[in-house]
């Protein structure tokens, strides 16, 4: 399948030139990290030195330290990062695809009255529990009132919102900077008794990354031609069957892209991990930042940790990259 817009050789050369320059810009910093991981402190500070064996004598001291002294920490953090990131990315993708499909194929009309009632009762519940009412009672009172208001006043106030507003509400949850919300989140998980567990991390990453997944996949689902779905519906296929066997395969490139993105977001998250984990659930980003202590930054150790942290993601990108391809989609549509 060749591009019919056959580019002239000059254009091809230009394309390659741009790609190569961009690749150098991307790869050189990583090369520098790799070289730094082989340097003794004195080689770092007397630098710049570029080539091992030519400019300076490489030393495995940093690798030995990270795998030796820090070995148990690194291994635990590695397993934590991998399991947390994979689990939360999978859940995020699943829930996100569901919601995104809903938002592109159905019409939602949440009533303003209901939302106002909900917020009002929520505030009431919080005020009650602050004033000393037991939490259970406060929740019960708030809930009861909510349904009461919903059934009476809520019905009269008919103005409603649309899909846009639902989507916008979702994404607006990402606006507050993490430093501001991290202590409430800490208290939340403390109350649930989930501090220092992977469950807490998976739950928070899923919730935090879900809006992004929804937004991205909404666009990909919109790009999927609806006539195929309609004909399937006429054939009597259920909504869920259409979703799983027609829509998802058609949106595969978008799914893969979204998966990669939410995976790296969870893989790299720092502040929430810092607060929710003590020893058992510590993740790799904490280790990276830990390489800067009272003695200043230990560049050589930090470089090693950065390198071993990228590796699995690179492998994942290599494996999944092929799915961001046109071929799959075209085949599916025609088949």
């Amino acid at each position: 399948m060749r591009n019919p817009l056959k580019p002239s050789p000059l254009q091809v050369a230009f394309t390659y030139a741009v790609l190569v320059i961009a690749a150098i810009v991307v790869l050189f910093p990583l090369y520098w990290v790799a070289v730094t991981s082989l340097k003794l402190p004195i080689d770092v500070f007397n630098g710049p030195f570029y080539l091992p064996f030519v400019d300076f004598k490489p030393s495995p001291h940093a690798w030995q330290y990270v795998f030796g002294v820090l070995g148990p920490d690194v291994k635990r953090a590695y397993l934590n990062t991998a399991s947390v990131a994979l689990a939360s990315a999978a859940i995020t993708l699943f829930l996100g695809a569901f919601a995104a499909y809903g938002l592109t194929r159905f019409e939602y009309r949440p009533r303003v009255g209901a939302i106002v009632a909900f917020i009002g009762c929520l505030v009431l519940g919080v005020v009650l529990s602050v004033l000393g009412t037991p939490v259970g009672v406060a929740v019960a009172v708030a809930l009861a009132l909510f349904f009461l208001v919903l059934q009476t006043l809520g019905r009269r106030f008919k103005r409603s919102l649309g899909n846009q507003d639902v989507a916008f509400w979702m994404i607006s949850n990402r606006i507050l900077p993490p430093v501001v919300v991290v202590i409430p989140i800490y208290l939340l998980f403390q109350q649930l008794g989930l501090l220092d567990t992977r469950t807490a991390l998976i739950a928070s990453y899923t919730a935090v990354n879900l809006p992004i997944a929804v937004w991205l996949m909404r666009d990909y689902f919109m790009g999927v031609p609806q006539d195929v779905e309609e004909s399937a519906q006429i054939d009597g296929a259920s909504r869920y069957r259409i979703f799983f066997s027609i829509v998802l395969p058609l949106a595969a490139p978008g799914l893969v892209a979204t998966f990669l993105l939410v995976l790296v977001f969870a893989w790299n998250e720092y502040l929430v991990a810092l607060f929710l984990s003590k020893a058992n659930a510590q993740t790799m980003p904490l280790l990276v930042s830990a390489m800067s202590g009272t003695r200043g930054t230990e560049w050589w150790y930090m470089s090693v940790v950065i390198l071993i942290m990228i590796l699995p993601v690179v492998v994942m990108a290599i494996i999944l990259e092929r799915y961001i391809e046109r071929g799959l989609i075209v085949g599916a549509v025609k088949g």
Binding site: D73, I183, Y186, L187, Q190, L274, F275, K278, A279, L286, S289, A290, S292, G293, T294
Partner: peptide, 18 residues
């Protein structure tokens, strides 16, 4: 148990005062 230096103060206080 270790945390990065820059966050030690906050960690001790958060853990103990909550």
């Amino acid at each position: 148990v270790v945390v990065p230096f820059a966050d030690l103060y906050q960690q001790i206080l958060t853990d103990a005062t909550t």
